[in-house]
Design a protein around this nucleic acid. Sequence first.
RNA 1: GUGGCCGUAGCUCAGAUGGUUAGAGCGCCAGGUUGUGGCCCUGGAGGUCGGGGGUUCAAGUCCCCUCGGUCACCCCA
Length: 446
Amino acid sequence: MEAMRAPSGTHDVLWPDSRRWEHVLARFSAAARIAGFGLAITPLIEDVRLFQRGIGQFSDVVSKEMYELTDRGGRRLALRPEGTAPVVRAFVQHRPALPWKAWYATPAFRYERPQAGRYRQHHQVGVEALGTPDPDLDVEVIALASGFYGELGLHEVELICNSMGCATCRPAYVEALRSYLASRADTLCPEHTTSFQASPLRVLDCKTEACRMATDAAPRLIDHLCQDCSAHFERVCSGLDEQGIAHRIEPRLVRGFDYYTRTTFEFVGLALDSAQNAVGGGGRYDGLVEALGGPPTPGIGFGIGIERLLLACDAEGCFQQDATQADVFVVDLVGGHAARSLVGELRAAGVPTARAYDQRSMKAQLKAADRSGAAIALIVGPQEEAAGAVAIRNLRSPRGSGEQDRVARENVLPAILEMAGTAGIVGLWGTAGVESVGGLDGEGVP
RNA sequence: GUGGCCGUAGCUCAGAUGGUUAGAGCGCCAGGUUGUGGCCCUGGAGGUCGGGGGUUCAAGUCCCCUCGGUCACCCCA
């Protein structure tokens, strides 16, 4: 029988790797809440038209990368390829009071050829803020992402931004660019010599030497912005300066979704070797709500790819791998009833506690205790049981020293707390909740 | 969707030009120490050599197909 495996381009995230995910998720949710964003959970499946109308019928993501399905009722559905459209759809459907700020964490599905940093199912955390064109909001949203990277200890990240203009100024610019490209069509790369007609903006983003040179002198969008867009972009940039957020204006930055207007930005992981080095990106989408059937409402948001974020964190060595499954390990040589009662008692008191099963030998149980990373072993054999006591052993004491005491059964908890001090595990528990998950507290944050 | 590289134990990998029962390190299990983890020693379990077909007296090794992984293009997080 062939062993089952996860579909191509999808991955399992298991302990201890998953610790980093818990950490990232906990940090992001905290940062988002502090910034006034509330969690939004929306369905993984949506009407395909949501993405066709939102992202754009002819975008690559919609035209050739969507996971589409027909349900038993004949509805055409799609697995979300990105996070913004569903949240904006929820806004249109429920019309919460403005401004509305939501954060999310979600898988996203795109049928692409997998490679480093690119998967068919990947995961994003992100935010959407709807209801005002105020550039202060742009700054705030960008600052949230930027601060989040910093909190994780990720520093080799470059912020690049651009403005895509609006319905007033962009069409004229696109026309200008198209005719410029037409004049140099023969110097473009093979792929763009004809396709520039349909999507001239894409050529700006082309990495080939030919297109680079050809577009060096091309008209730049930021020079063709209308007065409003220009003023808006200036205020975003000065706002970022004011906050001390380094950024580079990149007139070539073109993002793949049709809904973007005005501010667009991307965070590039400089420590990443892979060609997939965008660790986050987003922008304003002042026409999206309307396109989805809601009232004219401006909005802005970003998404951060967790897999790429983690790749970047690895490249910078943000996390120390130091997994512990428990702080206390119970070794039972009396048939299991001591383990049952001690484990129950300690866990109820909030102490991460593990034990062995199957009545294995003492050596095997202590070995398991060692591997679990526990700092303390509680040992109950016939002698202890007869004396109504528990042996408490410091698993972190120097090799051979075998530091071990015997305490009365009822004094186990205080004895653990006392030894915890010398074993150097204070604080591993007691700060219950996501922040202490996996003992990652403080790691990676200078 | 296009192209390059790679699939041998749970993991990392050896296995010249085809030739006996396919190996190592790590990990796992047990014993050495009948009540004490880490270091050490001994032993053990674990493989349809990704799958299918072909060439051959003989295929992990050569050929074809296929699946999977990986990298790049494309696109994006």
